[in-house]
Amino acid sequence: MADFTQTLMTAAAIGSLYALIALGYTMVYGILKFINFAHSDIVVLGAWSSYTVADQVLPRLGYDSRTIPPLWIGAVILPLIMLFCGFVGYVIERLAYRPLRRAPRLNVLITAIGVSLFLQNLGQLDFMFGASPEKMPALLPSWELASFSFGTGEATRKVVISLVDTMIFATSGTLMLVLEYLVFRTKLGTAMRAVSYNTDTAALMGIPVDRVISFTFVLGSSLAAAAGFLYVMKYPGINQPAHTVWVLLGLKAFVAAVIGGIGNVRGAVLGGFVIAFVEQFGAFYISSNYRDVYVFALLIGILLVKPTGLLGSPLREKV
C-alpha cells in the first residue's frame, strides 16, 4: 500500500512536468502542424539557465551551497527564465520557421531538427553550459510537508509528501489554469484557436496570423522553461545539454500530446498524466527494464484504437 501510494505521488509530480512540456508541443502542432523537435531544447535551456542564474546570483546574495535562500528568490527566477526562453522561442520562430511558412511540413520538421542539433551542440560548448553534469543549488528547503506510514515494526514504510513535489504540482497547475484562461477566455486565445482551425480563413478575418504564431511560440517556450526550472528543482543533478535523454523527455511529452489528442490543450495535460502513470506503475509492477517501452506501446495501442487521441476530435477530410 505504501509503495502504491508512493508510486502514485511520483507519477503525479512527473505527470505535471510532462503536461507542461506537452502543452508547448500541442499548441505549436495545433497551429503549424509540425512536431517542434527543438521544443525539448527549450526545456534544456530553461533548466540550464535556471542553474546558471542560481549559481551566479545566490553566492552574491550571500547564500552558500548549504543555506537555503528564501522562497522569493525562486519566485523571481522562474518568471525571468520564462521570459528569457519565451524570447528565445520567438527568435527561433522568426528566424528559422517563419521563412518556411509555405514550405512542405516535412521541411519545417527538418529545420526543427536542425535547430535542435544547433542548440544542443552550442549548449555543450565550454563557454556555454559545458559537457558535464552540474548540481542545481537548492532553492527550496527539503521539507517533508507530510509523511505517513503503512505497516508496523520492521515492515514500516513511509510515504513522504515533499515540499518540492507539492510546489511542482502547484506551480504547473497554476500555469495550466492561466493557459486555460488565456486560450478559452481571451481575445488572443480566440485568435489562436481560429488560426489553428484554419489559417487562411483566420487571416481573412483580420487576425494577424504571424503575430499569433509568434505568441504561441513565446507561450509554449515559456511553459517549457517553467518545466525546465521545475525539473531541476526536483532533480538537482542536471544532465548536460546534448544528452539524448532530453530528446527522449521531449519525445515522451510529444507522445503525451498525441495520446491526449494533438492540438487539444486539455488533452495534453491528460496525456501527460497518463503516460507518467503508465511509466511509473509499469516500472514498479512489471519491470524497470522496459520503462520506455510502456510509453511507446501505449501510444501505438491508443492510436490504433482511437487515431485522434483520447480527447481529439475526429479528423475532418476536406476534398
Binding site: 509503495d3 508512493q6 508510486t7 511520483t10 512527473i14 525539473y231 526536483k234 532533480y235 543533478g237 544532465n239 544528452h243 539524448t244 535523454v245 527522449l248 511509466e279 511509473q280 506503475f281 516500472a283 514498479f284 524497470s288 520503462r291 520506455d292
Partner: peptide
C-alpha cells in the same frame, strides 16, 4: 537508462 532522472519506481 543512462541519463534517466527519475529512479523512484526502481528505488521503491
Amino acid at each position: 537508462q543512462a541519463g534517466d532522472q527519475d529512479f523512484s519506481a526502481q528505488l521503491t
